[in-house]
Simulated assay, not measured.
Amino acid sequence: MNSIQERQEEIIEEFSMFEDWMQRYEYMIELGKSLPLIDEKHKTEENIIKGCQSRVWVYAEMDDDQVDFTADSDAIITKGIIAILIRVFSGQKPEDIINAKTDFIDEIGLKEHLSPTRANGLVSMIKQMKMYAIAYNSQQNNKA
């Protein structure tokens, strides 16, 4: 299993292959098509990311000692954004997700190429994924 840092470096490398942002947007749309989709039963109000312009659902569950994420969105670019975040965080330990830096987002230039509402949504998605990790981490610590 690759670490969060290794996954982020892979994404930076992939994005550096594209010369302009139209190509990067197209790549993000392609990534969104490969998103592990959330089960319809988890498309609930409590799994909607607050602060997103579009509707984004993120669901997390613990599998052994790792958090697995699934998601969906009604906007293709947003689907690509959440696909990138899932690729980075899914299958990782809660503590690693909590402590992860997300500098790779700035390195690939994503935040600066999003509208202000989408950039806010990106921050909200990261925050929600970290909140899931915090909840699972405290559950693990209570069991110990």
Rank of each mutant, 00 (worst) to 15 (best):
N2S: 13
N2F: 11
E6F: 13
Q8A: 02
E10Y: 14
I11T: 03
E13K: 15
E13I: 09
S16E: 14
E19W: 10
D20V: 12
D20M: 07
D20T: 11
M28Y: 04
S34V: 06
S34L: 14
L35I: 03
P36G: 06
P36S: 06
L37V: 15
D39E: 08
E40N: 08
T44I: 13
E45V: 11
N47R: 01
N47L: 10
I48L: 09
I49E: 02
I49V: 11
I49L: 04
K50R: 15
K50G: 12
G51C: 08
S54P: 05
Y59P: 00
Y59D: 00
A60S: 08
M62S: 09
M62E: 10
M62W: 11
D64T: 08
Q66W: 09
V67Q: 01
D68N: 14
D68C: 15
A71C: 07
S73E: 06
D74P: 03
I77L: 04
K79H: 02
I82V: 12
I82N: 01
I84S: 09
I84D: 09
I84V: 15
I86P: 08
R87Q: 14
D96T: 04
I98G: 03
T102E: 13
T102R: 05
I108N: 15
G109F: 07
L114C: 07
L114S: 03
L114M: 11
S115Y: 11
P116G: 06
R118L: 07
V123N: 06
M125V: 08
K127R: 14
K130H: 10
K130G: 13
K130A: 12
M131T: 14
A133E: 01
I134L: 11
N137H: 10
N137Q: 11
S138G: 05
Q139H: 10
Q140E: 12
N141R: 07
N142A: 12
A144R: 12
